[in-house]
Protein backbone atom coordinates (compact mmCIF):
# COMPACT_ATOMS: atom_id res chain seq x y z
CA UNK A 1 0.00 0.00 0.00
CA UNK A 2 2.85 2.28 0.88
CA UNK A 3 4.46 1.66 -2.48
CA UNK A 4 1.20 2.27 -4.26
CA UNK A 5 0.50 5.59 -2.55
CA UNK A 6 3.97 6.82 -3.45
CA UNK A 7 3.60 5.77 -7.06
CA UNK A 8 -0.02 6.62 -7.65
CA UNK A 9 0.85 9.10 -10.36
CA UNK A 10 2.95 6.65 -12.37
CA UNK A 11 0.40 3.89 -11.96
CA UNK A 12 -2.35 6.22 -13.17
CA UNK A 13 -0.29 7.10 -16.24
CA UNK A 14 0.40 3.41 -17.00
CA UNK A 15 -3.28 2.62 -16.59
CA UNK A 16 -4.14 5.31 -19.13
CA UNK A 17 -1.47 3.95 -21.51
CA UNK A 18 -2.89 0.48 -21.04
CA UNK A 19 -6.41 1.56 -21.96
CA UNK A 20 -5.12 3.48 -24.96
CA UNK A 21 -3.39 0.32 -26.17
CA UNK A 22 -6.22 -2.13 -25.52
CA UNK A 23 -9.36 -0.38 -26.71
CA UNK A 24 -8.35 0.44 -30.32
CA UNK A 25 -7.38 -3.15 -31.24
CA UNK A 26 -10.64 -4.46 -29.78
CA UNK A 27 -12.72 -2.07 -31.89
CA UNK A 28 -10.57 -2.57 -34.98
CA UNK A 29 -10.72 -6.34 -34.84
CA UNK A 30 -14.48 -6.21 -34.40
CA UNK A 31 -14.83 -3.97 -37.45
CA UNK A 32 -12.59 -6.24 -39.55
CA UNK A 33 -13.88 -9.59 -38.35
CA UNK A 34 -17.62 -9.16 -38.74
CA UNK A 35 -17.51 -8.83 -42.53
CA UNK A 36 -14.86 -11.54 -42.82
CA UNK A 37 -16.85 -13.84 -40.56
CA UNK A 38 -19.98 -13.24 -42.63
CA UNK A 39 -18.03 -14.09 -45.78
CA UNK A 40 -16.67 -17.27 -44.21
CA UNK A 41 -20.12 -18.32 -42.99
CA UNK A 42 -21.77 -17.65 -46.32
CA UNK A 43 -19.31 -19.45 -48.52
CA UNK A 44 -18.16 -23.02 -48.33
CA UNK A 45 -15.11 -22.18 -50.41
CA UNK A 46 -13.85 -19.23 -48.36
CA UNK A 47 -14.55 -20.74 -44.99
CA UNK A 48 -11.72 -23.22 -44.69
CA UNK A 49 -8.88 -20.98 -45.95
CA UNK A 50 -10.05 -17.98 -43.91
CA UNK A 51 -10.39 -19.96 -40.71
CA UNK A 52 -7.14 -21.82 -41.25
CA UNK A 53 -5.28 -18.58 -41.89
CA UNK A 54 -6.65 -16.87 -38.81
CA UNK A 55 -6.05 -19.99 -36.75
CA UNK A 56 -2.40 -20.05 -37.78
CA UNK A 57 -1.98 -16.35 -37.00
CA UNK A 58 -3.28 -17.05 -33.54
CA UNK A 59 -0.62 -19.70 -33.07
CA UNK A 60 2.23 -17.19 -33.37
CA UNK A 61 3.55 -16.29 -29.91
CA UNK A 62 2.78 -12.70 -28.99
CA UNK A 63 6.35 -11.66 -28.32
CA UNK A 64 7.42 -12.99 -31.71
CA UNK A 65 4.59 -11.15 -33.42
CA UNK A 66 5.56 -7.88 -31.70
CA UNK A 67 9.02 -8.26 -33.26
CA UNK A 68 7.98 -9.55 -36.69
CA UNK A 69 5.21 -7.04 -37.47
CA UNK A 70 7.10 -3.71 -37.30
CA UNK A 71 9.42 -4.35 -40.29
CA UNK A 72 6.48 -5.68 -42.31
CA UNK A 73 4.37 -2.61 -41.59
CA UNK A 74 7.28 -0.17 -41.52
CA UNK A 75 6.69 0.76 -37.89
CA UNK A 76 9.29 1.37 -35.19
CA UNK A 77 9.68 -1.53 -32.73
CA UNK A 78 8.87 0.40 -29.58
CA UNK A 79 5.65 2.12 -30.53
CA UNK A 80 2.05 1.99 -29.59
CA UNK A 81 1.15 1.45 -33.23
CA UNK A 82 3.08 -1.85 -33.25
CA UNK A 83 1.13 -2.99 -30.26
CA UNK A 84 -2.23 -1.97 -31.71
CA UNK A 85 -1.44 -3.68 -35.01
CA UNK A 86 -0.29 -6.91 -33.37
CA UNK A 87 -3.24 -7.06 -31.01
CA UNK A 88 -5.63 -6.37 -33.88
CA UNK A 89 -4.16 -9.37 -35.65
CA UNK A 90 -4.80 -11.54 -32.58
CA UNK A 91 -8.25 -10.09 -32.09
CA UNK A 92 -9.13 -10.96 -35.68
CA UNK A 93 -7.64 -14.42 -35.32
CA UNK A 94 -10.17 -15.13 -32.57
CA UNK A 95 -13.08 -13.07 -33.85
CA UNK A 96 -13.25 -14.19 -37.47
CA UNK A 97 -13.95 -17.72 -36.32
CA UNK A 98 -16.33 -16.44 -33.65
CA UNK A 99 -18.19 -14.31 -36.19
CA UNK A 100 -18.39 -17.20 -38.66
CA UNK A 101 -19.87 -19.41 -35.94
CA UNK A 102 -22.22 -16.58 -34.99
CA UNK A 103 -23.56 -16.22 -38.51
CA UNK A 104 -23.81 -19.99 -38.81
CA UNK A 105 -26.01 -19.95 -35.72
CA UNK A 106 -28.65 -17.88 -37.50
CA UNK A 107 -31.37 -20.40 -38.37
CA UNK A 108 -31.66 -21.00 -42.09
CA UNK A 109 -35.46 -20.77 -42.05
CA UNK A 110 -35.40 -17.34 -40.40
CA UNK A 111 -33.02 -16.20 -43.13
CA UNK A 112 -35.32 -17.64 -45.80
CA UNK A 113 -38.43 -16.15 -44.23
CA UNK A 114 -36.80 -12.71 -44.08
CA UNK A 115 -35.71 -12.96 -47.69
CA UNK A 116 -39.21 -14.09 -48.64
CA UNK A 117 -40.77 -11.07 -46.91
CA UNK A 118 -38.74 -8.83 -49.18
CA UNK A 119 -35.61 -7.89 -47.26
CA UNK A 120 -32.81 -6.83 -49.57
CA UNK A 121 -29.44 -8.51 -48.98
CA UNK A 122 -28.26 -5.41 -47.16
CA UNK A 123 -31.37 -5.18 -44.97
CA UNK A 124 -31.16 -8.91 -44.34
CA UNK A 125 -27.64 -8.48 -42.98
CA UNK A 126 -28.33 -5.47 -40.75
CA UNK A 127 -31.83 -6.26 -39.55
CA UNK A 128 -31.84 -10.03 -39.36
CA UNK A 129 -28.46 -11.75 -39.52
CA UNK A 130 -26.37 -9.40 -37.40
CA UNK A 131 -28.90 -9.11 -34.55
CA UNK A 132 -29.46 -12.86 -34.48
CA UNK A 133 -25.71 -13.52 -34.63
CA UNK A 134 -25.33 -11.08 -31.73
CA UNK A 135 -25.24 -13.45 -28.76
CA UNK A 136 -22.58 -15.78 -30.21
CA UNK A 137 -20.61 -12.79 -31.49
CA UNK A 138 -20.75 -11.26 -28.04
CA UNK A 139 -19.26 -14.29 -26.37
CA UNK A 140 -16.38 -14.29 -28.86
CA UNK A 141 -15.87 -10.56 -28.37
CA UNK A 142 -15.69 -11.02 -24.63
CA UNK A 143 -12.84 -13.50 -25.06
CA UNK A 144 -11.04 -10.98 -27.27
CA UNK A 145 -11.55 -8.17 -24.76
CA UNK A 146 -10.13 -10.13 -21.87
CA UNK A 147 -7.19 -11.61 -23.74
CA UNK A 148 -6.27 -8.29 -25.40
CA UNK A 149 -6.11 -6.52 -22.06
CA UNK A 150 -3.87 -9.27 -20.74
CA UNK A 151 -1.62 -9.38 -23.85
CA UNK A 152 -0.92 -5.65 -23.77
CA UNK A 153 1.32 -6.27 -20.75
CA UNK A 154 3.70 -8.44 -22.80
CA UNK A 155 4.80 -5.34 -24.70
CA UNK A 156 6.57 -4.15 -21.57
CA UNK A 157 9.50 -6.51 -22.19
CA UNK A 158 10.33 -4.69 -25.42
CA UNK A 159 9.74 -1.34 -23.77
CA UNK A 160 6.17 -0.37 -24.66
CA UNK A 161 4.72 1.13 -21.52
CA UNK A 162 1.50 -0.21 -20.04
CA UNK A 163 0.50 -1.86 -16.78
CA UNK A 164 3.02 -4.50 -17.86
CA UNK A 165 5.76 -2.00 -17.04
CA UNK A 166 4.85 -2.60 -13.40
CA UNK A 167 5.90 -6.25 -13.93
CA UNK A 168 9.25 -5.54 -15.59
CA UNK A 169 10.12 -2.71 -13.19
CA UNK A 170 8.94 -4.67 -10.20
CA UNK A 171 10.94 -7.71 -11.25
CA UNK A 172 14.14 -5.81 -11.93
CA UNK A 173 13.97 -3.86 -8.71
CA UNK A 174 12.51 -6.67 -6.63
CA UNK A 175 9.28 -4.92 -5.66
CA UNK A 176 6.44 -7.40 -5.15
CA UNK A 177 3.91 -4.63 -4.62
CA UNK A 178 4.53 -3.27 -8.08
CA UNK A 179 3.85 -6.63 -9.74
CA UNK A 180 0.81 -7.35 -7.61
CA UNK A 181 -0.63 -3.93 -8.35
CA UNK A 182 -0.10 -4.59 -12.05
CA UNK A 183 -1.82 -7.98 -11.91
CA UNK A 184 -4.79 -6.66 -9.95
CA UNK A 185 -5.25 -3.65 -12.21
CA UNK A 186 -4.92 -5.70 -15.40
CA UNK A 187 -7.54 -8.16 -14.24
CA UNK A 188 -9.74 -5.28 -13.09
CA UNK A 189 -9.47 -3.52 -16.47
CA UNK A 190 -10.31 -6.80 -18.23
CA UNK A 191 -13.40 -7.36 -16.13
CA UNK A 192 -14.45 -3.73 -16.46
CA UNK A 193 -14.26 -3.73 -20.25
CA UNK A 194 -15.97 -7.12 -20.30
CA UNK A 195 -18.80 -5.73 -18.20
CA UNK A 196 -19.09 -2.75 -20.55
CA UNK A 197 -19.48 -5.15 -23.47
CA UNK A 198 -22.23 -7.02 -21.70
CA UNK A 199 -24.03 -3.80 -20.84
CA UNK A 200 -23.74 -2.54 -24.40
CA UNK A 201 -25.04 -5.86 -25.70
CA UNK A 202 -27.98 -5.67 -23.33
CA UNK A 203 -28.87 -2.26 -24.65
CA UNK A 204 -28.46 -3.38 -28.27
CA UNK A 205 -30.23 -6.72 -27.90
CA UNK A 206 -33.14 -6.03 -25.57
CA UNK A 207 -34.84 -9.27 -26.62
CA UNK A 208 -31.95 -11.30 -25.30
CA UNK A 209 -31.41 -11.74 -21.61
CA UNK A 210 -27.65 -11.44 -21.72
CA UNK A 211 -26.05 -13.12 -18.79
CA UNK A 212 -22.99 -11.46 -17.32
Amino acid sequence: MNWLSQNLHIVGQLLADHLALSIPPILLSLAISVPLGRLAAGSGRLRAPLLTATGLLYAIPSLALFVILPPILGLPLRSGATMVAALTVYGCALLVRGAADAFDSVPEDVRLAAAATGHSRWALFWRVELPLAGPVLLSALRVVVVSTVSLVTVGAVIGISSLGTLFTDGFQRGIDASIVTGIVLTVAVAFLLDALCVLAARALMPWQRVRA
Partner: peptide
Amino acid sequence: RALPTLGLLTILGL
Protein backbone atom coordinates in the same frame (compact mmCIF):
# COMPACT_ATOMS: atom_id res chain seq x y z
CA ARG B 1 -7.65 -15.76 -19.46
CA ALA B 2 -7.68 -12.44 -17.63
CA LEU B 3 -4.52 -13.24 -15.65
CA PRO B 4 -1.55 -11.52 -17.33
CA THR B 5 1.11 -14.10 -18.12
CA LEU B 6 4.03 -11.75 -17.61
CA GLY B 7 2.70 -10.71 -14.22
CA LEU B 8 2.45 -14.33 -13.14
CA LEU B 9 5.96 -15.08 -14.44
CA THR B 10 7.59 -12.13 -12.73
CA ILE B 11 5.86 -12.52 -9.37
CA LEU B 12 6.77 -16.21 -9.28
CA GLY B 13 10.28 -15.31 -10.45
CA LEU B 14 10.67 -12.94 -7.53
